[in-house]
Design a protein around this nucleic acid. Structure first.
Length: 405
RNA sequence: GGGUAGGUAGCGAAGUGGUUAAACGCAACAGACUGUAAAUCUGUCGACUAUGUCUUCGGAGGUUCGAAUCCUCCCCUACCCA
């Protein structure tokens, strides 16, 4: 196969990126790689404490895939060691510490999900505990001596917290350094990350230089806004569309994004090859609904298949347009023949507490076979013939009794 | 080590002895209108054996008929001094 020229490669790499530090260096590296027939090492860090990948992750993963397709080497680093620190980027909450085993498992799950975008055959996966775990305290001291407090405080996040007189723990300073050590260890040529990773990426660059390695090129990708339209997509904010969401969920969540996001989503989430029809639609502002449906269908197809995407759409129409229950709901059987509605709702998990179940009924959002439950004291009579329970717009349950009397 | 200011529900933030399960804002949830869009309106938003009861205001004790509010000790955070 013919390797693409530097310019051809650059044209692809530049797509959707926010910043490349620096383009000149990247060009040099690409040139060098062509001359020596040595692929570039492209690094992407993965946080195993959050193994649920969502469309936000896909932005940067797609970029990594593009590098793979250009013949470069993708290295996925599972930050099992750094997870013990918890990246202080953005919202800083102490994360639960992972055991080594959990970290491995999550790492594998991450890789498996990422394989929906990456070429798994051509992806190198490694765990940073393999080198960070063996550093001695003396090594850490040496490492920390390369950086100053003032430089650390330059980081936007630290600076804000510092000014707001919020706590910053010493170990948080170690996070960028640890991540930087990954780059020193790997001697990678490029590191990819979201814009929130810029500082960390730059530390990696500095440290490589300190350790006598050609510094990596840092490429930042935009952060995807969540389905709510405000904050960045994040599982914990509940505004994420996950790789593992069912096709129906994925489709539904896609339709719930604000119209203003259609174009952005289309640009960042759909690979250029698949973009055509949707792109045109997304520009037709008078038809946002059509565009959104096409986009939603495409997204589902990307993570599942065309037929599953079509099913998701049918399913959606049935529930939300025709307001009917879905065809397939898992049947839940009970020993009892009669149960108070409130109890049933909590058992089914439709409500977290009985108080909440009560509220659901009071707010007239509970239907049994299309009949509205009016009284909180009401009991449901379970029969062999299953009954459909609907709570709110999107929760459906099918219940019956096991016993024949 | 000394001093100052703080710690209130998912978050932000009022409240400084008595209708306070705790104002208000955001988020969330439900309903109306829709296109599971936005905007808007309404309601909900600790739990339970439920027109009442129980548990919450960093933690543990104490004062009081009554404490998020007063006292003591402890823990945590920021800032200043060393």
């Amino acid at each position: 196969m013919r390797f693409p020229t530097v310019q051809e490669q650059l044209d692809i790499i530049v797509g959707n990126v926010v910043e490349i530090l620096s383009v000149d260096e990247l060009e040099q590296k690409l040139l060098q790689s062509l001359k020596t027939s040595r692929p570039l090492k492209i690094k992407l860090g993965a946080d195993p404490s959050r193994p649920d990948l969502h469309l936000g992750h896909s932005v940067v993963l797609r970029k990594l895939r593009e590098f793979q397709d250009l013949g470069h080497e993708a290295i996925l680093i599972i930050g099992d060691f750094t997870a013990m620190i918890g990246d202080p980027s953005g919202k800083s909450k102490t994360r639960p510490q992972l055991s080594a085993e959990e970290a491995r498992q999550n790492g594998e799950s991450y890789f498996e999900q990422a394989s929906k975008i990456l070429d798994p055959e051509k992806t190198t996966i490694c765990y940073n505990s393999d080198w960070l775990g063996f550093m001695k305290f003396a090594d850490v001291i040496r490492l920390s001596s390369h950086y100053t407090v003032a430089r650390m405080l330059e980081r936007d996040d630290f600076e804000k917290r510092y000014r707001a007189q919020e706590p910053i723990s010493i170990h948080e300073f170690l996070y960028p350094l640890a991540q930087g050590m990954d780059s020193v260890h790997l001697k990678n040529d490029v590191e990819l990350g979201g814009t929130d990773q810029k500082f960390n990426l730059l530390v990696g660059r500095d440290l490589q230089r300190e350790y006598g390695i050609t510094p990596q090129v840092c490429i930042t990708m935009p952060l995807l806004v969540g389905t709510g339209g405000g904050e960045k997509m994040s599982k914990s904010l509940g505004n994420a569309i996950c790789f593992n969401d069912s096709p129906a969920d994925m489709y539904g969540k896609m339709l719930s994004i604000p119209d203003t996001l259609i174009e952005t989503y289309c640009r960042l989430l759909v690979p250029p090859a698949d973009k055509k029809g949707i792109e045109i639609l997304s520009k037709r502002i008078e038809e946002p609904r059509t565009a959104k449906r096409a986009l939603a269908k495409k997204i589902v197809a990307l993570y599942y298949s065309n037929s599953e995407a079509a099913d998701a759409e049918t399913h959606f129409d049935q529930i939300f347009i025709h307001k009917k229950a879905p065809d397939h709901i898992e049947l839940i059987e009970f020993e009892e023949q009669s149960l108070p509605m409130i109890d049933l709702l909590t058992i089914l998990g439709a409500a977290v507490s009985k108080s909440e179940a009560r509220r659901m009924i009071q707010q007239k959002s509970v239907l049994v076979d299309d009949r509205k439950i009016e009284e909180i004291t009401e009991c449901i009579e379970l029969e062999i013939e299953p009954k459909i329970i609907r709570v709110g717009k999107r929760k459906f349950f099918k219940v019956a009794t096991k016993k024949t009397f």
